[in-house]
Simulated assay, not measured.
Amino acid sequence: MTTHFITAEINLQETPIQLQQEIEAELQKRGEPLRWAVTRVDSDRQIAQVEAIVTVESDTEVSL
C-alpha cells in the first residue's frame, strides 16, 4: 500500500452535503482517502480545488 498526494477540481454543488459527496466520489476513483481539504474556491468558474492524501494498493497505478 502506498500513499499519494493529489489535487482535484470539483464543480461547486448547490449544498455543502452535495459538495462533500461529490468530493468523496471523485477521491474514491483515485484511492482510499485518508484526509482531504478544500484549499481554494474559484467563484467565477464555480470550482473548488481539493487537496487529498489517498492510499492505493501497491500494484495499482494512480493517474493524476
Rank of each mutant, 00 (worst) to 15 (best):
E14I: 10
S58M: 11
E51Y: 08
T55G: 09
T7Q: 08
V38Q: 00
V50F: 07
E51C: 06
L12Q: 09
W36K: 00
L12A: 08
A48C: 04
N11P: 09
S63V: 03
W36N: 03
G31C: 03
S63W: 04
E24M: 15
D44S: 12
M1F: 04
T7R: 11
I10Y: 00
V50G: 03
T60E: 11
H4W: 05
A8V: 10
I53H: 01
L12M: 11
Q13P: 05
Q18W: 10
A25M: 04
Q13E: 08
P16R: 12
E32D: 07
T15Y: 12
V54R: 02
T15K: 10
R40C: 00
S58H: 12
F5R: 15
L27E: 01
I17C: 02
I10H: 02
E32V: 13
D42K: 15
I47F: 00
E61Y: 10
Q21F: 07
E61F: 14
A37Y: 12
I53G: 01
A25H: 03
Q20V: 07
T3C: 15
Q21K: 11
I17L: 04
T3H: 13
I10P: 02
D44F: 14
E26N: 07
Q46D: 00
T55M: 14
T39R: 09
L12E: 03
I53P: 03
I23D: 02
E14W: 14
D59F: 13
L19T: 05
V62H: 03
I23S: 05
S43K: 03
A52W: 11
L19S: 11
T15G: 06
E26I: 05
Q13F: 12
F5H: 15
R45K: 15
R30M: 13
T39W: 09
A25F: 08
V41R: 14
H4E: 06
N11H: 09
L12S: 01
D44Q: 11
E51Q: 11
I10A: 01
